[in-house]
């Protein structure tokens, strides 16, 4: 059947940064199937259009939420939504983070900028079962301290190591300055026994995945989340192609072993 959006009411709206908002939703009528961390929805701003957005919270742990950065007509419209507004959502679409592959192993989760949002439900899922994993590490990078999302929540997490770094500090910043990969030196993990999850801008994904592998993490144990233009999310519009991969079907979460040769080709 045609994928038609399902009405959802905005039940809370939390500004995260100057241009980023987290919206929590409840279904007006029938609910969507349960999302898994890493999956995405097509979210509709009335009269503007639809965009793919990964879930920053899933029904199973805290209800459906999207964290949206205002960068275009549709995301502007979504960021301006008020509590009580109705937004159309369809999904779940795409692949999810394979957290079960990290069971019994060290976990390294690396987020760059808004890439933190799709990783958040994964982190919550791991923290809900700390005994299932060895050491959980969360590494977060952003351009400036003002671009950091959910700082208080991050500070409350009981991980083996949580590191936060920014590219450009601000006057009150006392934390790390520099790229997120430099935090790997302080993270607590045995590379051969580690599963890693990475999301952020493509150059950051590339640099992080390469560094993890240099440390000795097996390259089929590094999962990354890719981004491409998407119009349908059902594998029919052709926009999200990355070589042989239709990102909406075989992604957004893929093994680095699969993604690396594709991302190495310019303008693929």
């Amino acid at each position: 059947m045609t994928a038609v959006p399902v009405p959802h009411r905005v039940i809370s709206r939390r500004p995260e940064t100057a241009d980023t908002v987290t919206l929590r939703f409840e279904p007006v009528g029938r609910p969507l199937a349960d999302f898994l961390p890493g999956q995405f929805a097509m979210v509709h701003a009335f009269g503007r259009g639809e965009i793919p957005v990964s879930v920053s919270s899933v029904q199973a742990t805290g209800g459906l939420a999207h964290t949206v950065r205002s960068v275009g007509a549709v995301s502007d419209g979504l960021c301006a939504a008020r509590v009580g507004d109705v937004v159309g959502i369809r999904g779940p679409y795409g692949t999810s983070w394979e957290l079960q592959r990290a069971r019994g192993r060290d976990v390294v989760i690396v987020a760059g900028g808004i890439g933190f949002a799709p990783l958040r439900p994964l982190i919550l899922g791991a923290l809900a079962e700390p005994e299932a994993y060895r050491r959980i590490n969360v590494l977060i990078g952003a351009r400036t301290p003002s671009d950091l999302i959910a700082r208080a929540e991050v500070a409350s997490w009981a991980t083996a190591y949580t590191g936060v770094t920014v590219d450009q500090p601000e006057p009150d910043w006392r934390g790390d300055v520099g790229v997120v990969t430099q935090l790997l030196g302080r993270a607590q993990f045995e590379p051969e026994e580690t599963t890693a999850f990475v999301c952020g801008p493509e150059p950051m994904i590339r640099a992080t995945a390469r560094e993890l592998i240099q440390h000795g993490v097996p390259h089929d144990r590094v999962q990354v989340s890719l981004e491409r233009n998407m119009r349908c999310a059902t594998g029919h519009c052709g926009h999200c192609q990355l070589g042989p991969v239709l990102v909406c079907q075989a992604g957004p979460v893929v093994d680095w072993a699969h993604a690396e040769p594709l991302l190495a080709v310019r303008e693929l």
């Binding site: 059947m1 045609t2 038609v4 959006p5 399902v6 009405p7 007006v28 509709h44 009335f46 009580g84 507004d85 109705v86 937004v87 159309g88």
Partner: peptide
């Protein structure tokens, strides 16, 4: 046309498949 949507006076939105 894939679908259409109408916003009612009370703010509810109704989506209709084509």
């Amino acid at each position: 046309r894939l679908w259409s949507a109408d916003r009612k006076p009370d703010g509810e939105v109704v989506f209709g498949a084509e």
